[in-house]
Design a protein around this nucleic acid. Structure first.
Ligand SMILES: [Zn+2]
Ligand SMILES: [Zn+2]
Ligand SMILES: [Zn+2]
Ligand SMILES: [Zn+2]
Lengths: 140, 140
DNA sequence: CTACATGCTCTAGCGACTAGAGGTGCAAGA
DNA sequence: TCTTGCACCTCTAGTCGCTAGAGCATGTAG
């Protein structure tokens, strides 16, 4: 019976007010009912949905993936294979990203630690940037 | 002999043609001279500059940082402290990103491996997404 | 000379928001 | 009751680093 304003929904879900409106505009969250003064009025289920979205975003899922996951959530008797596939794809993505960043980290360490902090024309940072041949990894 | 077209510059530097024009439009690369038919004509130094930009982008430096690095490169007798600071900042960024992604990886593994691949209402993936309390890390 | 590749400018779109302008609604204190 | 002031509304435009396309002009090989 209590009306949940967009501000309340934001506080309870951790999703910012403009972002909630944005999610509505892209059809990720259904348009809620309105008060007499045309203000959005949410149900507890909407807040749970927002928290779900936020958590999925924090874990790096794209909005399109979240759209699919939300649809699945609404069909509890279906097999969960596609949800698992989405999560697994994200996991593989993250693993690749970590590998790539570790290689990057190595290059950056070489640059930073290799520099004697003198003049620019002796700077290891600038030197390596100007010549990828100085890198230990062939591809970044 | 010379007359490096934008296509040649692209092939030699690894930066795509529209991207070169984009870099010119944001002032990252100086506008080159033009041929009689109004076509861009680059010097070898421009191609080196493009390769520098590309390498820096591959290492994840932002365009604004690259702008600073390029300015520094043009002043070889200056101290390289600010170049080193930019690289170090990027290194710290990368290290933080790796840590964050490792935590993410752990959560995703729990989700993917914890699921018995049955019905959606028993899916570990959906369950964890709906409740951050199920996560091992407090913050993502 | 004729194709066709490459070049030109300009505009719009991507993802996932964020910021601001300019207006309305609403609750609480004086 | 009035007023203050925050919360809410819509709409537009900006962020970053490109990328895609339209509709032309130019350059080159056969
Ligand atoms: Zn240095
Ligand atoms: Zn390199
Ligand atoms: Zn599952
Ligand atoms: Zn979590």
């Amino acid at each position: 019976m209590k009306k949940i304003t967009i501000g309340d929904a934001a506080r309870q879900s951790g999703v910012k007010v403009p972002t909630i409106r944005y999610y509505e505009s892209i059809g990720l969250l259904a348009a809620p009912s309105r008060s007499e003064g045309n203000q959005r009025s949410y149900e507890p289920a909407d807040v749970r949905r927002l928290a779900f979205i936020r958590h999925a975003r924090e874990l790096g899922f794209e909005v399109d993936a979240i759209r699919t996951l939300l649809t699945l959530q609404d069909e509890p008797d279906q097999p969960c294979a596609s949800a698992d596939a989405i999560a697994k794809a994200r996991l593989i993505e993250v693993e690749q990203r970590i590998r790539s960043l570790m290689a990057l980290k190595a290059e950056l360490e070489m640059m930073v630690e290799g520099c004697g902090h003198g003049r620019v024309d002796q700077c290891r940072v600038i030197e390596v940037l100007a010549d990828h041949g100085q890198c230990t990894h062939a591809h970044h």
